[in-house]
Amino acid sequence: MSGSSSRRFVFTLAVSLFTFCFLVLSTVCAAETPRRIISLAPNMTELLFALGLGDRVVGVTTFCDYPEEAKKRPKIGGMSNPSLEAVVSLKPDMVVMTTDGNQKEFEERLRSLGIKTYVFRAKQIREFPQGIRDLGIAMGVRERADRLAGEIEAALNSFKDTLRVARHASREEKVLFIVWPEPLIVAGRGSIAGDAMTILGVENIAADSRGAYPKFSIEEILRKAPDIIFIGKGHKEMEKVSQGLLARLKTVPAVKNRKVFFVGDYLYRLTPRTVKGIEELEGYIEK
């Protein structure tokens, strides 16, 4: 074998190796945008639409009601009990789910059927921007995700700035966020509304109870005397449903000074609209 042919062989080998590595790396790094996405959680649906992937969402849960367009997509069942058949029959190339309401077993089942899944792990507001960035990379919409995450980060930081100004002014307000009046369920530590209160620098009087949404003691509300009470609108007639509870809390400063506010449901799901929910609380706290 002559020297030149051996050199050519080495060269060819090097080129093909390089091409191979390039191909492998490129498929790993810049994931292709999935074309048929199924979302198994309302907040994921909302986020996918916000990332401009709405057209590719081919299936949602019965709870996915935002944006308006999402309601028209085929339904695959609830969050905790999606129908495997419905998911498979929509031929998705990506199923997006969360660690909050979805079953881990369902994800394993999907993967064993050869369907790609993405599990969104952010649960708290401050983990949310990074969660969006990771999702953006996996969905092949990195730039758009970076932009959205940046906007949310900026909004969150602006809360911290106003907070620094407010700190000089007065003491920490004591706040309670009621999710449901009878039986009394409130937002504790680890809930999104609880997070929002931390960001706004107010004291959540339910922060020391167990679980994100504990069943709370009415006695403790009287004793801790919150200055402001928020009631989330989880039901169409929340004002009427809450009358009984508020009548029993009539001596609490929040009720006496008419500082009971009914707020939107932005703080029940971790979505880009969560920022709006924090703004809403801030508006009432500053009043």
Partner: peptide, 12 residues
Amino acid sequence: STDEGLRRATLW
């Protein structure tokens, strides 16, 4: 039902 309120209201 997709009404979260209903779920909570039946907890009693």
